[in-house]
């Protein structure tokens, strides 16, 4: 598979610039919500020291209970360095200044790219597994996930659906959310509107597209104008006709085996919509 070759190459470049590690890292610190969850699934007992504070937030993280066993970090170089890590797991958009500082201090840093497809989930699992010296566990997890995905059934006819988030944000083609919708038997309005990646879909275009299902997120505590759009009368009128699903972002944001739960929830919603 060319993409896994590319990942292996990227990993070699990332790791190869630094001295070789003869054995698996013993003190791993993760500073990104998505690597947090992969690391928690893959770590040997005692190997993982700390995960980011987001891992403790039930609206963002699918593994709040597991996170309780670890220290929380806020991803700052000072705090992370004082944990004496021998491996730091970060995302591709983690602040460059932080990572450069950590690398300069001699800490090995591995950045895991954002997962934008279901196939990418297994790549991410294998990448983190290799970085942590847990290849065998990673391989088992990846194969189990692939088998679970393959076992999912698809309905005959696909219904239209739109993701609608605060500020009118939606997911278009080439996103993990798009593939989750497709696997669950939906056609994504965002992708059909010509969006690639994430972007905003004006409310009136959503109304005119009249999707059969509208997927919205669970609001955060505290007030925000961004979330007010989810209570807009036009959207309420739309959801009276269409099906509405309020999902927990946590299962959608990261490329972990938890996206299975997202697919299952949407497949359930698809069934309730009928043929």
């Amino acid at each position: 598979m060319p993409s896994s070759n590319a990942l292996a190459l990227a990993l070699t470049v990332l790791v190869g610039a630094l001295p070789a590690w003869a054995e698996a890292p013993q003190r791993v610190v993760s500073i990104n919500l998505c690597t947090d969850q992969l690391a928690m699934m893959l770590a040997a007992p005692g190997q993982l020291i700390s995960v980011s504070h987001l891992a403790f937030d039930p609206l963002s993280s699918s593994m709040v209970e597991e996170a309780a066993a670890y220290l929380a970090n806020r991803g700052g170089a000072e705090q992370v360095f004082l944990m004496h890590p021998d491996l730091v797991l970060a995302g591709s958009y983690t602040s460059r200044a932080t990572l450069d500082l950590l690398r300069g201090l001699g800490v090995r840093v591995v950045q895991v790219p954002i997962v934008d497809s279901i196939a990418g989930v297994t790549e991410g699992i294998r990448l983190v597994g290799a970085a942590m010296g847990r290849e065998a566990v990673a391989e088992r997890l990846a194969l189990a996930f692939e088998a679970d995905v393959a076992a999912l059934s698809r309905p005959e006819r696909s219904a239209t659906a739109a993701m609608y988030y605060p500020n009118g944000y939606t997911s278009g083609a080439g996103t993990l959310s798009n593939e989750v919708l497709e696997r669950a038997g939906f056609r994504n309005i965002g992708a059909e509107a010509g969006l690639t990646g994430g972007g905003t879909l004006p409310l009136e275009r959503l109304v005119m597209a009249a999707p059969e299902m509208i997927v919205t997120s669970t609001p955060y505590p505290g007030a925000s104008r961004s979330e007010e759009i989810l209570q807009h009368p036009a959207l309420s009128a739309l959801t009276q006709v269409a099906g509405g699903a309020r999902v927990n972002d946590a299962d959608w944001v990261c490329g972990t085996p938890h996206v299975l739960r997202a697919i299952q929830q949407m497949a359930q919603a698809r069934q309730e919509l009928g043929e």
């Binding site: 955060y220 505290g222 007030a223 104008r225 961004s226």
Partner: peptide
């Protein structure tokens, strides 16, 4: 200081 992650983005609004 808001617990809502969107609130800080609304300073511009």
């Amino acid at each position: 200081l808001s617990p809502n992650p969107f609130a800080a983005m609304e300073i511009v609004f």
